[in-house]
Design a protein around this nucleic acid. Structure first.
Length: 646
RNA sequence: GGGGUGGUAGUUAAGUCGGUUAUAACGCCGGCCUGUCACGCCGGAGGCCGCGGGUUCGAGUCCCGUCCACCCCGCCA
């Protein structure tokens, strides 16, 4: 039987030792974080998940009266100090290297006032080692296990088990645990049942691309990995479970981003006999609890009523250019389309082309195809011309972006440094008044396709806000702004004029708009809502259709005929006719929420084993080529030849 | 599918106009050191300059292709 672990069990985590433990005999296990060798005396920083403790191997050390007072030793009738054992420990200290895994037995002593390290929780004490063992002589790691490292992400991912030893990632994953635990206990307390849904599902066209899994038992057929439990959670409602939740993996085979992984985790919720407000109340309670338990912030200070503000989708797009406004700062956009129409283009040919289309009836103000909009960079920002041009340059990544017309407001309201030479004085003054600008402000105009104009100005607003220091480049900066964005349009129009569901085909139109389904689908809004935190969408959901007749109307707008509807969603449609309660729900992006709470800016830092931009696990090498025999068994033939060297 | 940035020692980077033996810091190895905590000091090893082709007397450097990583657009609620 081994001396350590079998006989000597861990008494403390390294990081939890304090001055109150002075005089205790302790057994610590951990990784060697640093080694400082002074010849006769070696200091090791021993690290485990709770932190770091300094352990000392001292050639000349012999136990004193302090040690003899340790009652535990007397009780075991065992000597604390054996000089042979201590010699072998000293030997170990000379050999030991970073990231070796060792165990030590020793006594907690005070470091002496001069040697206290205030930066460590354990900085007052150290452990005098009487006995030690090596569990694993680690190879030199490819990068240092330190809080801040400059190492490229692909190397960190390849050695993820080492990367995860770093304190920031340990903290993040611990926070993730805390989020999970809090969600479970809160939702369970609220009467929701944690129920599971299949991962292997039926492929459904539309929405995200599915990962496919060949079926061995059913030659030539495939499962799809669930992109979300959407349909199943609605079925739970039809089965009468009333309130459901699940912390669930979802899979989407789309291109990846900083904030997108092919598999990710949702906090999935669905409830029966509820309206939008019921969902909001539950989620607001959940967020208050999660923020409290993770120590992120006291939301009561921001939202004493317990409610988050609400804003219509239309208002959000008008004021901020998108449906996920960052409310930590102002600098709102100003819609100028109607003003431009009143001024018949204001002498600007590009604007006149747009206003003419409104006058001829080709465009409608309720759902404008093109708009005129402006954003003001305040004079106080005092950006140089190269800086202003840098903003414009970074907008070029927006597809369809044509350019940014700037005008600097001079004394008396004149526009200088501007390409808009032909503007009429009346329009110029009217714009100045609408924007409330004064000397030195820079007006940034966008005219053209609504989506492009909004995307460009939304990005410009964020870029300027960051450059002005109103918000940090990344992270929360201690500010938390939550918001419900509600009632977006139910449909989007495709290039060819046909209609697509903006969210999914089972979202309920707002009651007053049901009549518009036949006549004017563009204006139909729906009971959909997004929860926005500091400019990130952290969750979204909707009240679902439970009336088969309205469902049928929605399908007909979408051009989905009975036959294909049956094909795609047959079981759900049948279930809807089998006794469907009014119901709705929401899904929270668990990874993204944890990322924001932790102050991070990449999803990869809150996911234990993430994949690269190409969806590759550089550690295991997945995905890989498989043997022909395996493919045969699955009744699959591969057309592409993968490069085996990759 | 498209655009951008990058790839040089274990890691992070420098490398001029194409020219001698490719630099530095950290890490690593050896030595010294009893109060350090990013210990310090002395010495040393370490390179397919992503890969393939081309131009050239000569390529880390120029050209073409390709692979990988990151960021973005499309896509993805």
């Amino acid at each position: 039987m081994a001396r350590f672990i079998d006989d000597l069990q861990r008494t403390h985590y390294c990081g939890e030792l304090r001055a109150s433990d002075l005089g205790k005999e302790v057994v610590l296990f951990g990784w060697v974080a640093h080694r400082r060798d002074f010849g006769g005396c070696v200091f090791l920083d021993l690290r485990d998940r709770e932190g770091i403790a300094q352990v000392v191997f001292d050639r000349t050390y012999t136990p004193t009266g302090e040690v003899s007072r340790i009652t535990a030793l007397a009780a075991r009738g065992e000597a604390f100090w054996d000089s042979t054992v201590a010699d072998s420990a000293q030997q170990l200290a000379e050999e030991v290297r970073r990231e070796w895994v060792i165990g030590v037995r020793g006594v907690v002593v005070h470091r002496g006032e001069k040697n206290v390290n205030p930066r460590l929780g354990t900085g007052e004490i150290e452990v005098r080692v009487a006995e030690a063992v090596v569990f694993n002589r680690a190879e030199t790691p490819p990068f240092s296990v330190e809080d801040e490292i400059a190492t490229d992400e692909d190397i960190r991912l390849k050695y993820r088990y080492i990367d995860l030893r770093r304190a920031p990632l340990q903290r993040n994953l611990r926070m993730r645990h805390e989020v999970n635990q809090t969600v479970r206990s809160y939702l369970s307390d609220q009467g929701a049942l944690e129920l599971e849904t299949p991962i292997l599902c039926k492929y459904t066209p539309g929405g995200a691309r599915n990962f496919l899994v060949p079926s061995r038992l059913n030659a030539g057929k495939f499962y799809a990995l669930a992109e979300s439990p959407q349909l199943f959670k609605q079925l739970f409602m039809m089965s009468g479970f009333d309130k459901y939740f699940q912390i669930v993996k979802c899979f989407r085979d789309e291109d990846l981003r900083l904030d997108r992984q092919p598999e990710f985790t949702q906090i999935d919720i669905e409830m029966s006999f509820v309206c939008q407000d019921d969902i909001f109340r539950l989620l607001e309670g959940l967020m208050f609890r999660v923020f409290e338990k993770t120590g992120a912030a006291d939301l009561k200070a921001h939202y004493p009523s317990g409610e988050f503000p609400r804003m219509s989708f239309a208002e959000s797009v008008r004021r901020f250019g998108n449906d996920k406004p960052d409310l930590r700062f102002g600098l709102e956009l100003t819609e100028l389309t109607e003003l431009a129409i009143a001024h018949d283009g204001g002498g600007l040919p590009l604007v006149k082309a747009i206003t003419d289309s409104f006058k001829s009836g080709a465009y409608r103000l309720e759902v404008p195809a093109e708009i005129v909009k402006a954003f003001v960079i305040p004079a106080s920002a005092n950006f140089s011309r190269p800086q202003l041009e840098a903003f414009e340059k970074s907008l070029r990544e927006i597809k369809g972006f044509k350019g940014l017309a700037r005008a600097k407001v001079a004394d008396g309201g004149a526009w200088t440094q501007s390409p808009l030479k032909t503007v009429t004085d009346e329009f110029r003054l009217a714009v100045n008044a609408a924007l409330g600008v004064s000397d030195g402000d820079v007006i940034c105009f966008q005219f053209g396709k609504t989506d492009v104009v909004n995307a460009a100005l939304a990005k410009l607003r964020l870029d300027v806000g960051k450059k002005m220091g109103l918000i940090p480049e990344s992270g929360h900066g201690g500010q938390w702004r939550l918001l419900w964005v509600v009632n977006p349009p139910l449909f989007e129009q495709n290039e060819d004029g046909t209609w697509a569901a903006a969210h999914h085909a089972f979202t309920r139109p707002v009651d007053e708009h049901v009549a518009l389904l036949d006549s004017d689908p563009a204006r139909v809004l729906c009971y959909r809502y997004d929860l926005v935190l500091n400019g990130f969408e952290i969750g979204g959901g909707s009240i679902r259709l439970h009336d088969p007749d309205v469902q049928q109307k929605v399908f007909s707008v979408l051009g989905i005929h009975e036959e294909s509807a049956k094909n795609m969603f047959g079981f759900l449609l049948e279930a809807l006719r089998s006794g469907a309660p009014p119901h709705g729900g929401i899904a929270i992006g668990m990874d993204r929420l944890t990322m924001l709470l932790s102050g991070g800016s990449t999803l990869r830092d809150v996911i234990p084993f993430p994949k690269t931009n190409q969806g590759v696990d550089t550690m295991s090498g997945a995905p890989v080529v498989v043997a022909p025999a395996q493919l045969d068994e699955l009744h699959v033939a591969v057309a592409a030849s993968a490069d085996p060297a990759r």
